[in-house]
Design a protein around this nucleic acid. Structure first.
Length: 379
RNA sequence: GGGUAGGUAGUCAAGUGGCCAACGACAACAGACUGUAAAUCUGUCCUCUUACGAGUUCGAAGGUUCGAAUCCUUCCCUGCCCA
């Protein structure tokens, strides 16, 4: 049982894109990688079997806030951790609840000690401190666990973003101190990733990257992006952060994004992504395909009996027709949610595998440029 | 044949003299969604117009009234009960 390893296996002459291999006690992850989001211990509407066989996911996420509220730590501990509980035996990454500081802004209060949340389930109040969040993630048992941060909204005043960043840094110190003074619970190694903040301000991002890099963590994350800022700003900040984070450690861009966002950020040096878009938007009728974006709800697909996307190595994408999926989604049939989610995730995983192939082939940049044009199209 | 309840926009269904192009629900059509309080939310939904607005509606035809989906008359149709 060993700490997470990262080996760079390929680079690109005309961009910062690279390929790599992450090794954890639950297996390997080839990068660049997309990680499906399984907030409450499940990727919504998708079974673990489908994640393996159709989506071909090598790692999924779980969420501290949601799992802490339900089923709760007692159940998770008695189960022997989330892997044993949900049957996913590949790597798991848990988000710290930092994003909920942002998304649950109406029901929480930020203090130096931590954040007091009001549960969205029953209204009960809970304090999330860096120490507590480390303890919870120890109990959930993610292979990669995230530091507790504040994700400031967009737009934020410079002064607020600066204060928020420093708070995140102080919390980061406490996360590491507590993490290092506690032990792995289930016989495999857990790994803590710090998170860069600083909103859209280059000097703050630079300072945050320096602070985060100083932790010499096994991997580093970029947070606080894709919260409403213009796309170009996402790319610029992402690039600046990648340039300032260690080369030999995996870089994880949190919460991003569209297929073209992912390709653009791979080009800038990101190795890991997660996003709810393929699942949430899939449930809401938006399909990402190798020809562009489809709103499967639209009448134009009513009699289109062609496969959802025959180019994707996924039985769901190849077997079910657009017309049938439209019917299922319009009829609110559960199967529709599953097909749309499985297809979208399979497409995302297909996309990062393709990116990897082109990085290794050395033609990533031109491939990426042509792909982005195609993928953005509204069909 | 007698009695009775009713006929409102794609459907169901409010409204019972002016605040009605007509509540609401559903369907339909379109949009949003980026570390998931989201199988959710928003908009349109008689016709024409981007909009302002204009024009036709509430089974049909007449009538009362300054004014009718709402009141009166006749007719047509539907449900239920009795023969």
């Amino acid at each position: 049982m060993a700490a997470l390893q990262f080996e760079l296996t390929g680079g690109c002459p005309d961009s910062a894109a690279r390929t790599g291999r992450i090794t954890t006690d639950h297996g390997e992850i080839l990068t660049p990688i997309f990680m499906p989001v399984g907030t409450a211990g499940s990727v919504k509407a998708v079974s673990q079997q489908q994640l393996k066989e159709e989506v071909k996911a090598s790692i999924i996420l779980g969420n501290t806030y949601h799992l802490y509220l339900r089923p709760g730590l007692e159940v998770l501990e008695e189960a022997g951790g989330l892997h044993r509980f949900n049957g996913w035996d590949r790597p798991i990454l848990t988000d710290s609840g930092g994003y909920q500081v942002f998304s649950l802004s109406g029901t929480r209060k930020i203090q130096e000690e931590g954040v007091v949340f009001q549960s969205h389930i029953d209204g009960s109040r809970h304090l999330f401190s860096p120490e507590k969040v480390m303890d919870i993630q120890r109990t959930i048992g993610g292979d990669i666990i995230m530091a507790f941060d504040e994700c400031p909204p967009y737009p934020s005043e410079y002064g607020y973003a600066e204060k928020s960043m420093h708070l995140t840094h102080r919390w980061l110190d406490r996360c590491f101190t507590h993490f290092e003074s506690t032990a792995d619970k289930y016989g495999y190694t857990q790994n803590l990733f710090p998170i860069v903040q600083g909103s859209v301000f280059p000097d703050l991002r630079k300072a945050s990257c320096a602070y985060v890099s100083g932790k010499n963590a096994v991997g580093n994350a970029i947070g606080g992006l894709s919260v409403g800022e213009p796309e170009q700003q996402l790319y610029d900040i992402c690039q600046a952060c990648c340039e300032d984070l260690p080369v030999h450690r995996p870089r994880y861009l949190m919460g991003v994004g569209t297929p073209w966002n992912i390709l653009e950020c791979i080009a800038r040096g990101v190795d890991m992504f997660d996003c709810v878009m393929p699942t949430r938007n899939g449930r809401n009728a938006m399909l990402f395909t190798s020809r562009g974006v489809i709103n499967i709800d639209n009448k134009r697909w009513e009699k289109d009996f062609s496969p959802i996307d025959e180019g994707i190595d996924c039985a769901f994408s190849q077997f079910y027709s657009k017309a049938y999926l439209r019917h299922l989604i319009k009829s609110k049939e559960f199967l529709g949610l599953t097909i749309a989610s499985v297809h979208n995730l399979a497409f995302y995983l297909h996309l990062v595998r393709e990116a990897r192939t082109h990085i290794l082939q050395g033609d990533f940049l031109s491939w990426k440029n042509s792909q982005c044009e195609i993928l953005k199209q509204r069909l």
